[in-house]
Computed example of a mutant assay.
Amino acid sequence: MDKGAETKKITTHEDLVIYRKAFGAAMTIFEVSKKFPVEERYSLTDQIRRSSRSVCANFAEAWRKRRYKAAFVAKLSDCEAESAESQVWLKFAVKCGYMSIEQGRELFHTYNQVLSGLVKMINSPENWLIG
């Protein structure tokens, strides 16, 4: 290891890039969705906010369930599903003209990165388990 390289110890789910990307995307979605039409308040707006926030909440739960492989993987799978759902809502937001194509692509790409990280964790849970 390079003596100049600094490694940060992971102590909480918030230390992981995957979580920070998901949280950032959820906050961007929250800000953008403030401009969605009022008639979307109880449909698209609520759905996209709920699914994007759920990625983060389920990830926090998964992190706390690392003592139990099955529970850990199940919560990560929930994160994966919510990430994919968020991507679907992003496509609707773009197609309906509520979000720019560029912003939709950027957020979609972020969720692809989140999904990639989640799949790696799901496929190798032993790297993350404790106890």
Rank of each mutant, 00 (worst) to 15 (best):
M1Y: 08
M1R: 04
K3Q: 08
G4P: 05
G4M: 07
G4F: 03
A5R: 14
A5Y: 05
E6K: 09
E6M: 06
K9E: 08
I10N: 07
T11H: 00
T11E: 07
D15A: 10
D15Q: 05
D15K: 01
I18R: 00
I18Y: 02
Y19K: 09
R20W: 05
R20G: 12
K21I: 01
K21R: 10
A22R: 00
F23W: 14
F23T: 00
F23D: 10
A25H: 12
A26R: 02
A26Y: 08
T28G: 04
F30S: 04
F30W: 04
F30M: 02
E31V: 14
E31N: 09
S33M: 04
S33Q: 04
K35I: 09
K35F: 11
K35Y: 13
F36C: 06
P37N: 11
P37E: 03
P37C: 04
V38Q: 14
V38R: 13
E40M: 01
E40N: 02
E40W: 09
Y42H: 11
T45L: 01
D46A: 08
D46F: 14
I48Q: 04
I48H: 07
S51P: 04
V55D: 12
C56T: 13
C56H: 04
N58Q: 06
F59H: 06
A60F: 00
E61L: 07
W63F: 15
R64L: 09
K65W: 01
R66C: 04
R67T: 08
Y68M: 04
K69C: 12
A71Q: 02
A71V: 15
A71F: 00
V73E: 01
V73N: 01
V73D: 00
A74H: 05
A74I: 13
S77Y: 05
S77M: 03
S77V: 09
S77A: 13
D78G: 10
E80W: 10
E80H: 07
E82H: 07
S83N: 07
A84Q: 09
E85K: 11
E85D: 09
E85I: 15
E85G: 03
S86W: 15
V88A: 15
K91A: 13
F92I: 15
F92K: 05
K95D: 15
C96D: 02
C96I: 14
G97A: 10
G97I: 08
S100P: 01
E102H: 12
Q103I: 15
Q103S: 15
G104R: 03
G104Y: 06
G104H: 07
R105K: 14
E106V: 08
E106M: 13
L107G: 10
L107K: 04
F108D: 04
F108E: 06
H109F: 12
T110E: 10
Y111K: 11
Y111A: 05
Q113C: 11
V114Q: 06
V114K: 06
V114N: 05
L115A: 11
L115N: 05
L115G: 14
S116F: 14
S116E: 10
L118A: 09
L118K: 00
V119A: 07
K120W: 00
K120P: 00
K120M: 13
I122Q: 09
N123H: 09
S124A: 13
P125E: 02
P125G: 02
P125F: 07
E126V: 15
E126N: 08
E126S: 13
W128I: 05
W128T: 10
L129W: 01
L129S: 09
L129N: 06
G131H: 13
G131T: 10
G131D: 14
